[in-house]
Amino acid sequence: MRLARDPRVLGVLGTLVLCLAWEGIGASGLGGFTWPPLSRVLAMLADPDRWDLFGRAAGSTLASAVVGYIFGTLAGVALAMLTHFLPRLAPGADRLAAGMHAIPTVALAPVFLILLPADSTPPTLAGIGVAFLVYVAAAAGLRAASAAHRDLFQVLGAHPSARLLRLDLPAGLPSIATGLRLAVPAALIGAVIGEWFGAPRGLGVLIVNGMQNFQIVLLWSAVLLVALISLTAYLIAGAIERAVHARFR
């Protein structure tokens, strides 16, 4: 009975129920022909003949997401540092970040579509999503040092750069690491939506093609692949976050 209340056991059980329901609804035809059973989706993903297709698409999407992730992180941290040294800029920077975040990616896509070549829209949209989350996390993190630590550095006559390097940045790392974890799905959303707006290749392209051409199993496989990539990256980022929290707090 204790075992049945363990949240981990229940979580696994819930995942199992979810998978069984997916399979059952698909196999029985309850969901119509557009709901394939899980086994057929997995079979397609496991089919070596398809690996080339999925591999190229996933590689392209992943590359967009990674490029966006890196540049978004740099931009977010840089903006947070700017407002850290020039606090007068903070309210406007907050609005800018909130504005960019509140505006649906769909609304931004056309602007970049016109400004940039089609294959650079996915990384750009990924970068914008990441930049907002990292900016918010980094701005909060750079303010996280305790009053006692700040007093210490002031009495020690610390130069602002020494303070940033030896106090504010290390004290902010846990918050930045949390932001980096939350930014993982944001990077993939940006990449996939960017691909929907007309990139030559990628999982987003597979998804849209699958939808428009009634390649139902392909559609579900590509979506599942995006989810699996995101989940894996998210778990890795979570492990890094825990390590940073243990070290810097």
Binding site: R5, D6, P7, V9, L10, G11, L13, G14, T15, V17, L18, L182, V184, P185, A186, L188, I189, V192, I193, G204, I207, V208, G210, M211, L219, W220, V223, V226, A227, S230, L231, Y234, L235
Partner: peptide, 22 residues
Amino acid sequence: AGMLTPVTVLFSSVPVVTLIPI
């Protein structure tokens, strides 16, 4: 609650928007 935790985890770790075409 325990059985639905996967839903919670998926929401925060997976781009839900990609479900739209499905």
